[in-house]
Design a protein around this nucleic acid. Structure first.
Length: 416
RNA sequence: GCGGGCGUAGCUCAGUCGGUAGAGCACCAGAUUGUGGCUCUGGUGGUCGCGCGUUCAAAUCGCGUCGCUCGCCCCA
C-alpha cells in the first residue's frame, strides 16, 4: 500500500471543521489589528533561507528539503516564512511604498525532522510580521496580536515567556562572558553543549540536559549585559504589555534558535503539549533584511505559531467546536420513477441557498432514511410517484417524525 | 542523527503450550412491499505491516526491514 511521506498527514473531512475554526480566528484577529495577508511561493532559492536564517542553525544545516532544479539552481521547500517575506519585501520594493508593513500568513512549511507529538515534516504555521519600526510600540503590537489569537481561539492555560537578547554590541559582550564562564567548566557540560560552546553558546542556556541546567544556574545573565539602548527598549516593551494587561514571565535564559533575532524574544507555552511545550514564538529581527541584501537596515518584529500544536492545545482544553456542518434537507426518492424528477426539487432547494444531500446509490428508501438520519439533516423531503404526479412533496421533521404535505412552490416556508 | 514502546478487520482490541483467526463498534441487507433512530437475525470485510529464517506446522519463536508513537537534539 502506498503511504504518505513520513511526517506528513492527511487532513480529512472529519477534522476539517477544526481547521476552519482556527483559520477563522486568524482572519478575524488579523483584521482587528489591520494586518494584511500575504502568500509567497512554497519554495524559494536556497540562499533565501541560508542567508536569512543563518548557516550554523540546525534548521539550515540539517532540516531543509533542498534539491536542484533542472536549471541547476538550488531550491528549498520553505522551513519558515520570515526570510521568505523579507525576500518579497525587497523584491517588490514594498518598504519604499509604505513605511510600515503589517503582514500575516498561514500555510504549510517543511522541515526534515524525526516526527513526534506536535512535530511533523510538513506542518502549518500562522504568523505575523511588523516591518519598518524600531520602536517598542511595534514589539508590543506584534505580541498583542499573538495574544489576541490565543485568547480568541479559547486557550486559557498558557504562558508568555519574555526576554531581551539586546542589540549586537550587548549580545557580543554577553556571548564573550558566556564563553569564558562555560570554558572554565567545560567538562561538566553535555557533549552537545561542548560543541555549542564555539558555534552558538547562547543555546546552552535553554538546554534540557540536567548537567547543563546545573551549569547554567550560575552563568552570566543577559540582563546584566544590556546597554542603555537595549534595556530601555526592553523596559518599554514590558511597560506596554503591562498597560495592555498581557501577562508575561521574564526568563533571562530564553534564547531562540534562529540567528536573526535581537532585542525582544518571546515564546508561548502550554503544558498540554508534552516535550514540545512551545506553540508559538518570535522576536525582533532588525538585521534580517540586510542579510538578504537590503542596503538600509529595516527593523522588524514577528512571530509564528504552529497550527497543529495550537489544535492540540485547543483539543486538550476542549475549546474546539463540536460538530461539522449538516445539510438542511435530505431528499429521498421512494422507488425508481421519481429519481429524475427529484433533480428539479434538489436544484430548487439549492438555488434558494439550502444545503441539500441526496442518495446516489439507488438504495432502498429505508437505507436513504438511515443515511438521512446519520447526516443530521433536520428535514427529509420524500418524493414518490404520487407526489410527482400531484406536484407535491412530503416533508418530514426528523426529530419529531411529524410529516406534512406541501406543494413544491412552498418549499421555502417549511416550518414545523 | 540517537534511544524506548507498539504494528491482528475501516476503528478499539482478544487470540492460552506454535496446530492455519475472533469479539465489540462501524458498514450492508432482512424482520417492516412508501418512512430513520431502538431491538433481533444474517452478511461483507484479513497476505495477522513486509521479508527471510527455525519448524511437520508460525499471528505466536529468531533476525532484518518498513511504519506508527513517545523521548533526545532542534524548533512552531
Amino acid at each position: 500500500m502506498i503511504q504518505a511521506i513520513r511526517g506528513t498527514k492527511d487532513i480529512l473531512p472529519d477534522t476539517m471543521h477544526n481547521w476552519h475554526y482556527i483559520e477563522d480566528v486568524f482572519r478575524k484577529s488579523s483584521a482587528k489589528f489591520s494586518y494584511n495577508e500575504v502568500r509567497t511561493p512554497i519554495f524559494e532559492k536556497t540562499e533565501v533561507f541560508s542567508r536569512g536564517i543563518g548557516e550554523n542553525t540546525d534548521v539550515v544545516n540539517k532540516e531543509m528539503y533542498t534539491f536542484e532544479s533542472k536549471g541547476g539552481d538550488s531550491i528549498t521547500l520553505r522551513p519558515e516564512m520570515t526570510a521568505a517575506i523579507g525576500r518579497s519585501v525587497l523584491q517588490n520594493s514594498l518598504i519604499q511604498q509604505s513605511s510600515v508593513l503589517r503582514y500575516w500568513y498561514f500555510g504549510p512549511f517543511f522541515r526534515y525532522e524525526n516526527p513526534q507529538k506536535g512535530r511533523q515534516r510538513q506542518f502549518h504555521q500562522y504568523g505575523a510580521e511588523t516591518i519598518g519600526s524600531p520602536y517598542p510600540e511595534s514589539d508590543i503590537e506584534n505580541i498583542a496580536l499573538a495574544n489576541d489569537i490565543i485568547k480568541s481561539a479559547g486557550i486559557k492555560e498558557y504562558q508568555l515567556l519574555l526576554n531581551s537578547i539586546g542589540n549586537t554590541e550587548s549580545r557580543m559582550k554577553f556571548r564573550q562572558a558566556l564563553v569564558e564562564y562555560f570554558s572554565g567548566i567545560k567538562d561538566q557540560l553535555s557533549e552537545d553543549s561542548q560543541n555549542r560552546l564555539d558555534k552558538n553558546p547562547l543555546r546552552i542556556l535553554d538546554s534540557k540536559n540536567r548537567n547543563d541546567i546545573e551549569a547554567v544556574k550560575n552563568a552570566p545573565v543577559i540582563t546584566d549585559y544590556l546597554d542603555e539602548e537595549s534595556s530601555n527598549h526592553f523596559n518599554e516593551v514590558k511597560a506596554g504589555l503591562e498597560k495592555l494587561g498581557i501577562e508575561y514571565r521574564e526568563v533571562p535564559t530564553l534564547v531562540r534558535g534562529l540567528d536573526y533575532y535581537c532585542h525582544t524574544v518571546f515564546e508561548f507555552q502550554s503544558s498540554a503539549l508534552g516535550a514540545q511545550d512551545s506553540f508559538g514564538g518570535g522576536g525582533r529581527y532588525n538585521g534580517l533584511l540586510q542579510q538578504l541584501g537590503s542596503k538600509k537596515e529595516v527593523p522588524a518584529v514577528g512571530f509564528a505559531m504552529g497550527v497543529e500544536r495550537l489544535l492540540l492545545v485547543l483539543e486538550a482544553e476542549k475549546a474546539l467546536p463540536e460538530n461539522a456542518p449538516v445539510p438542511d434537507f435530505y431528499v429521498i426518492c421512494a422507488g425508481d420513477s421519481p429519481r429524475e424528477y427529484s433533480l428539479n426539487v434538489i436544484n430548487k432547494l439549492r438555488s434558494k441557498g439550502h444545503n441539500v444531500l441526496s442518495d446516489i446509490l439507488r438504495r432502498s428508501m429505508k437505507a436513504q432514511f438511515r443515511e438521512a438520519n446519520k447526516s443530521g439533516a433536520p428535514y427529509t423531503v420524500i418524493i414518490g410517484e404520487d407526489e410527482m404526479n400531484k406536484n407535491i412533496l412530503q416533508v418530514k421533521k426528523m426529530e419529531t417524525s411529524e410529516q406534512k404535505e406541501i406543494s413544491v412552490d412552498d418549499l421555502d416556508y417549511i416550518k414545523f
